[in-house]
Design a protein around this nucleic acid. Structure first.
Lengths: 219, 219
DNA sequence: AGATTTAGTTAGAGGCTATCACGAAGGTTA
DNA sequence: TAACCTTCGTGATAGCCTCTAACTAAATCT
């Protein structure tokens, strides 16, 4: 359908194979985690043998990088949609939680234990800052509360090193960081199974943390 | 046979080899992460070849389990010392941060992305509850602040399912959970390198979060 | 001493990543 | 149409890994 002018049949075939590889990779990650991802197994699943996949991906690392990129992109899109819907910080938080629960291994691929040798490419950090911007926007919309913190002063002194020119006041920066770390704290421990056997509902803890961040009880 | 308390030379030798294997394993983990741990490489480092290590560990999983257990034990000991020193919640928090920064991969071994097939043995959860108890003690010592939260009510309704009979009031349980998740949130993102390039000092963010938990500015 | 338990060895099965050289298609051009 | 060139997929191979099995050598027990 989408007849973009410059796609040859070969390119389309290539793109389709790459897409299928990534699809199988996601299935494999969802069941066994990223560390168990095997190019060989994917190739066999697709009916071709081992080294064939190296025509499509330079290696395991490039495939994982691609998956990380897609995961970031997915979260950024979800945040963008949530922002557009006007859900505010609460909306973003629920979007994040839903996104995380939808595929825990995808969450860990982005925010989990870093792979030792791996370093994220530039465009990934670009997407990451896009995510951060959405968070900052939501935090800037909230009224300031409490006295200025030492951290806020410290953040103000840094200039817009990581805000990429975002006009949010230092208190909003502080709140955005707290938001990020608190919600990640609950989510990562929940997804890692550290709450199992304790009996309480992780969602209530998430909601309680969110309340401390917005200053208002969540809906 | 040998009575209680005495160790045969064989047992001592065995224990010493096991200890050396674990030592090399920690070095390997510290440099390349747990996923890159190789029994083969450890054996070669120790001057013996491959399968010899299977006399000492049933397999890679058992070695990792042992390392996880030691890591938990190490944190529990550090917490116990901090509690004995009377440092309170602030002391525990600083102990946790120091412990985490001392060997980030050890922190991730305990609180990081879970290994898919792996399930922690019983004694590990025992040590985990020991850690939780230290945290609960510190939280119970703080004065209650603010109105009772829905989460606290929920926790009260559960009974002592995870408190193992700890007499802390529900508000303290809530605070302990917030403590755990918030400090973990900052630490895990810091150790995973998600703050690099942002320019701010993670320690100040950690301190800021700690302040929100104790209600008082940290020293 | 002899008998027994244990430590370490090599060989091998089966998995993985990754490279290489080769044949077999596909698309392009004369 | 025929020749050409690019790309795809293959098997072979090297090197790493986990882990099992059979065998040798040493330490320990009786």
């Amino acid at each position: 359908m989408a007849e973009t002018g410059t796609t040859t049949p070969r390119e389309r075939y290539r793109a389709q194979v790459r897409a299928e590889v990534k699809e199988r990779a996601w299935e494999q990650i969802a069941t066994a985690g990223a560390s168990a991802l095997s190019l060989n197994a994917i190739a066999k699943q697709m009916g071709m043998s081992g080294p064939a996949l190296y025509r499509y991906f330079a290696g395991r690392d490039e495939l994982i990088t691609e998956l990380v990129r897609d995961a970031y992109r997915s979260l950024a899109d979800a945040f963008r949609a949530s922002s557009a819907a006007g859900g505010g910080l609460t909306g973003l938080a629920h979007t994040l939680r839903a996104w995380a629960l939808d595929d825990p291994h995808r969450y860990f691929l982005v925010y989990g234990t870093p792979v030792p040798g791996y370093h994220a490419p530039d465009d990934v950090t670009t997407i990451a800052s896009e995510i951060m911007t959405a968070l900052l926007d939501a935090c800037a919309d909230l009224p300031a509360d409490g006295p200025p913190s030492p951290l806020a002063a410290h953040l103000e002194g840094l200039g817009d090193q990581w805000t990429s020119g975002h006009p949010a006041p230092p208190a909003a920066l502080h709140r955005a960081l707290s938001c990020w770390t608190r919600l990640h704290g609950v989510l990562s421990l929940e997804l890692a199974g550290h709450f199992t056997g304790m009996g309480f509902d992780p969602e209530l803890l998430f909601a309680a943390e969110l309340t401390t961040l917005t200053g208002r009880p969540t809906d």
